[in-house]
């Protein structure tokens, strides 16, 4: 290595250090990003670019052509629209419920309670589990012969096929993904809560401020920047949900829990013929959604600096 430095000179060394990282970024991130558009604008079922005919915006118009945009069955690609609707509904319900639970939990864990560290670790540990493991843990409990139905039977309710009913399957997909991810957001909110200066509360105590007033007038306004980051982060992750829902329900029953990433995966890799162009076009649509959310995140991140 010393010999190498002699040959290229000391000033070139940082570039040399950056090189492996940049080769990897270029080959596995920037190049694919550019190729995404190439795929989206070409047709056929061949992977190699030279044997793909250019078809312009046909993939996009196929994805986006609908008789009535509120009714997926009238669309040329009804599965795309159905998965898009599912994703939007999933994200709205999941993020709302998860942020509320995370906020409540963080506020409680920020109190002067016993065994706080234990509870914090407890709510966090599912974040580390693999989505496949999470899905199987819940699938095992949701079987017809599973433990939930055993409890229901104990109180005299007939067993329910949780994952075969569209509404229940959707409910559990949301619930399981909240269970798996809420700890991450609790941690971020808790860090935000602990950064609020103590003396503000002491000053409030001197004025005999009530608990509720302290919460709504001090804690929540000062936590707002963190809360905004958490919401946007949860939205970005939520839109990309795939693993745990796919293993839990397989997108079913029917296509009741099929999300947009599953549509991309199945269109491009799991059905014959492999419609790479269509999958890439759907990826571009997803990317547009994510860029919007990321810009929102950047704004959310900038706010605390301005204030």
């Amino acid at each position: 290595m010393a010999a190498l430095q002699k040959r290229v000179g000391r000033r070139a060394m940082p570039w040399l250090f950056l090189l492996p990282n940049f080769i990897l970024f270029a080959v596995f991130a920037f190049l694919p990003l550019a190729l995404d558009l190439v795929y989206a604008l070409t047709g056929g079922d061949q992977l190699s670019l030279s044997s793909r005919p250019f078809i312009g915006g046909e993939n996009f118009s196929s994805l986006l052509s609908c008789g009535n945009y509120l009714d997926p069955t009238t669309c040329e690609r009804d599965l795309f629209w159905r998965s898009l609707f599912n994703t939007l509904l999933f994200v709205v319900v999941q993020v709302t419920a998860m942020v509320l639970i995370a906020l409540t939990t963080a506020l409680i864990l920020n109190r002067n309670l016993r065994a706080r560290g234990f509870f914090r670790s407890l709510v966090f540990f599912p974040v580390m589990l693999s989505p496949v493991v999470v899905a199987l843990i819940w699938k095992w409990m949701l079987l017809r012969q599973g433990v939930f139905n055993a409890w229901l039977e104990n109180v005299g309710i007939a067993p329910i096929d949780w994952l075969s009913s569209p509404n229940w399957a959707f409910f559990w997909a949301v619930l399981v993904s909240i269970w798996a991810h809420v700890g991450f957001y609790v941690l971020i909110l808790l860090a935000g809560l602990q950064a609020i200066p103590r003396d503000i509360y002491e000053a409030a105590d001197m004025d005999a401020t009530g608990r509720w007033r302290k919460l709504t007038r001090i804690t929540l306004p000062l936590l707002w920047p963190n809360l905004l980051v958490v919401i946007v982060l949860a939205l970005i992750r939520g839109v990309q949900t795939f693993d745990e829902v796919y293993v839990l329900t397989g997108g079913g029953p029917g296509s009741a829990t099929k999300l947009i990433v599953q549509f991309i995966y199945e269109t491009g890799f799991a059905t014959q013929p492999r419609l790479y162009g269509l999958a890439a076009a759907a990826s571009v649509c997803l990317a547009v959604l994510l860029i919007g959310l990321t810009l929102a995140q950047l704004r959310a991140n900038r706010r605390p600096v301005n204030e």
Binding site: F25, F28, A29, L31, A34, D36, L47, S283
Partner: peptide, 21 residues
């Protein structure tokens, strides 16, 4: 900035071309 920018390229949106590479 370039290395941080790749944060905004989640694998879910480049599945097809990454598969080609």
């Amino acid at each position: 900035v370039l290395s941080i920018a790749t944060l905004m390229i989640p694998p879910t949106i480049v599945l097809v071309p990454l598969f080609l590479v």
